[in-house]
Design a protein around this nucleic acid. Structure first.
Lengths: 377, 377
DNA sequence: GTGAAAGCGCTAACAA
DNA sequence: TTGTTAGCGCTTTCAC
C-alpha cells in the first residue's frame, strides 16, 4: 500500500497523464461483456409504438402523460417502453412542441464561496418545489464566460435564467428576454436592462459594520474589500465611508485596501496594514473571504484573543460561530427563494413591471467586534 | 429606511407572497417599452438565409463555423444573423446532427458542503479547458432525485456524466452507458455496474486518524460519523475500527456515533458523548460537517484550548488552519481532474476496461490532534 | 379512444 | 463554393 502522501500536489498539473499518487485498481472484467449489446442507437417512440401495436401518436400520448388513453393500451405501451429501454429524446420533443425546457438556469460566479453555495442550494430547493430542475454553472467571475453560458442556456431554450452577474452592462440580456426567457439578477443589480433583481442592503451593511466598531471606541478602522468593480463591494464601502466620514475619525482612507478577491490576496493586504506606520485597532472585512483572511492573520500574529484587533466580518458563514466572529449577516436563502419567486412570477406574467428587491442585513455580535481598542492612545 | 432586521426568518416559508422584510424599489419604467417589439417568436436560420440571400445550407455552414464558405458570403450571413438577433436552436441542431450536447453533467449530493463545492469547481475548470460546459445539479442525497436527474441529463443527450451517487445500486446507469454516455463515479464507488470511478483512500484515512491519536496516548477515542449507508463513512470507520482493534484500547465501540449528516445532528452526538459516563479524551470526525460540530461543542464547553479533548477532523477545509485543526487531508481538486480525464478518455475509447482510481490521504498536524490526554488516568 | 399527415429548425448527404 | 433533398424524433392539428 502506498504511503500517506508526499506533500501538496504539483498545483494544477494540466493533464495528469500518469496515475501519479493514485492507486489504480483494475476492476476484473465480469462475465457480462457489453459488446454483445446493440450499438449506441437509441430506441425511438416509433419502435415503442410498433412493439405495442399502436400508432405513434398513441405511444406519444402515453409517454407524454396525456389523458384519453384506454388503460389497457397505456399499460401495453408502458411495458414495451420499459422492455425496450426507451428514453425520450428531449431535443425532438422540445423542437416539435415549441415549448421551453423544464429547467431554470443559474449562473454564479464562484461555486466555492459558501455564500453562493447557500444561494444555489436554496434556489435548487425552491425550484424543485415547482417541478423544475436547476442547471447550475459558474462563470468564474469572467464576463465573457458568463455571456457564453447565458447564450448557451438560451439556445437550449432554458425556461428562465437567474444570474449572479460579473458583467458591467446587461443590455445583451435584453435580447434573451425578448425571446421569452425571464432573467432575474441576484446579489448584483441589473444595469442597462429592465429586469427583476434581488440584492442585499449592502450600503447599510457597510455602515453598520463601521458604526459598530466606532461605538466601541475604535478610530483606526481598516477596511478590506473585494474587487472594486463589484457592486456589492462598492456599496459596502460606500456605507463604510459614510459612517467613517460622519465620525470625524481622522484620515481613515489610508487604512482601506480593496481589490482582493481571494483569501491569499486579502491576507496580504492585512499584513501590509499591520506592518504599516499606523496599525489599525479594528477591521471591517467586506465579504467572507476577507473575513477569513483577517482572522487568519490576526490569530497568527496575536496569540492572545483579548489583545487582538477587533473585526466585523461580512456573511454569516458556518465557521463564524466557533471563531466568535461578529458579522454583518443576511439571508442568502431568502435571496434565493425570492429570486425563484420573481422568475416564476414573470413566467406567468411577462409584461409585469420590473421589480427590485433589497433584503435587510443585521449585526450578529459574537465577540470579535466588541473588543475595545487598546487603552494606550 | 428599515431597521437592521428582526431575527432569523421563518424557516423555509414555502411561498413568501408578500415582500416581508424586503424593500421593494419599483424601477421607473424608461422610455423604451418592449411591447413594441415582435412577439416571442424566434428568428430561424431560414430567415437569416433569406435576409442574406443564400441557401439554408450556406447559412447553416456559416453559423455552424464550417469551412468552405467565401468570406464575403460569410460576412453577409453573419451580419444578417446579428441584425436579426439570431439564436441557434440547440434542440433542432442536436436532433438533426445526431450529436450529443456540448456539456458534461455533474450530479452532486450537497452544494453547500465545501468538499463537493471544491470538487465541482475543479471539474468545471477542467471541463472548460476541453471546450465543454458543465451542467451541475444536486440530488440532495436523495436516490430518487439523483436518478431523475441522471435520466433527464441522458434524455437531453448530455455528453457524459460524473456522479457523486447516493444510490446503493447503480445497475440503472448501465442503461445510460449503453446509449453511448460515459458515466464516472466520484467519491463513492460504482456498485452493480461496470464504470470508471475515483475515490479516496478512506480506509487509510480512518486508520491514520485513530493511529495519530493513539500515538499521543489517547485511549478513549470517540468517532463521529455520517450516514451509515455512505461508502465513505463505512470505509473511514472501517479504518478507524481496524486501528482501534489493534490497539487494545478497551471497549471503544461505546464511543462511536454515526448517522449524523449535518452539523446540528453531529453536535447532538458530541453532546451526548461528553455528558456520558465515559467522556472521550479525543475525537475523530468522519467528515467536515462533524469536524465543525465537534469543534463548536468543544470550544463552547472548554474555554481553555489546552484543556480540550483532542480532535482529528476529515477534509482540509478553509477554516481548518485558523482553528488549528489537525485533519486527514486529500485533494478534492485532484479528484475532479481525474474524473474529467476518465470521462474524456472513455469518450475517446468507449470499450476500454473500467478504471478505479484511489487517491491518497495524509495527516496535516495543526495542534488539535496533538493534544495529550489529561494526566489524571 | 385512436390514428394519419404535416412540420418544428436544423444538418447530412449528395449534387451542381 | 453553393444549393437541393431528405430526414432527425417528436408533437400538433384534425380527422375518424
Amino acid at each position: 500500500m502506498h504511503t500517506s502522501g508526499s506533500g501538496r500536489p504539483a498545483a494544477h498539473s494540466p493533464r495528469p497523464a500518469a496515475p501519479g499518487g493514485a492507486r489504480v485498481a483494475g476492476t476484473p472484467s465480469p462475465a457480462t461483456p457489453q459488446a454483445a449489446l446493440p450499438p449506441a442507437r437509441r430506441v425511438t417512440l416509433a419502435q415503442v409504438a410498433r412493439a405495442s401495436d399502436v400508432s405513434l401518436k398513441t405511444a406519444s400520448r402515453v409517454l407524454g402523460g396525456e389523458p384519453h388513453v384506454a388503460s389497457a393500451t397505456r399499460e401495453r405501451v408502458l411495458a414495451a417502453a420499459r422492455s425496450l429501454g426507451y428514453q425520450r429524446n428531449t431535443a425532438a420533443s422540445l423542437l416539435a412542441s415549441g415549448r421551453r425546457a423544464d429547467y431554470l438556469g443559474l449562473i454564479t460566479g464562484d461555486l466555492t464561496n459558501p455564500f453562493y453555495a447557500a444561494l444555489a442550494q436554496e434556489i435548487e430547493e425552491s425550484t424543485r418545489v415547482h417541478h423544475l430542475r436547476l442547471n447550475l454553472s459558474s462563470s468564474g467571475e469572467s464576463p465573457e464566460t458568463e455571456w457564453e453560458l447565458a447564450r448557451s442556456l438560451s439556445d437550449q431554450r432554458c425556461r428562465a435564467l437567474i444570474v449572479v452577474s460579473s458583467m458591467s452592462d446587461h443590455a445583451g440580456y435584453g435580447e434573451l428576454q425578448r425571446t421569452g426567457m425571464p432573467v432575474v439578477f441576484v446579489d448584483r443589480p441589473a444595469r442597462g436592462v429592465e429586469a427583476d433583481s434581488v440584492v442585499l442592503d449592502n450600503v447599510r451593511g457597510g455602515q453598520l459594520a463601521a458604526e459598530h466598531l466606532l461605538a466601541q471606541g475604535h478610530r483606526d478602522i481598516a477596511y478590506i474589500g473585494d474587487y472594486d468593480w463589484l457592486p456589492t463591494q462598492r456599496e459596502r464601502f460606500e456605507g463604510f465611508a459614510r459612517a467613517m466620514g460622519r465620525s470625524g475619525a481622522g484620515p481613515w482612507r489610508d487604512l482601506v485596501r480593496t481589490g482582493a478577491h481571494d483569501v491569499p490576496g486579502a491576507r496580504e493586504a492585512v499584513q501590509d496594514l499591520l506592518s504599516g506606520a499606523r496599525a489599525p485597532s479594528a477591521f471591517v472585512a467586506g465579504n467572507n473571504r476577507s473575513s477569513l483572511a483577517v482572522l487568519q492573520e490576526l490569530v497568527s500574529r496575536f496569540p492572545q484573543p483579548a489583545s487582538r484587533p477587533a473585526i466585523v466580518g461580512f456573511d454569516d458563514v458556518e465557521w463564524a460561530e466557533v471563531l466568535g466572529l461578529t458579522v454583518i449577516a443576511h439571508e442568502a436563502g431568502e435571496m434565493g427563494r425570492r429570486a425563484v419567486d420573481l422568475v416564476l412570477g414573470r413566467l406567468g406574467n411577462p409584461d409585469r413591471a420590473p421589480v427590485s428587491l433589497v433584503l435587510p442585513v443585521r449585526v450578529i455580535a459574537r465577540g470579535s467586534g466588541e473588543l475595545a481598542p487598546p487603552p494606550t492612545r
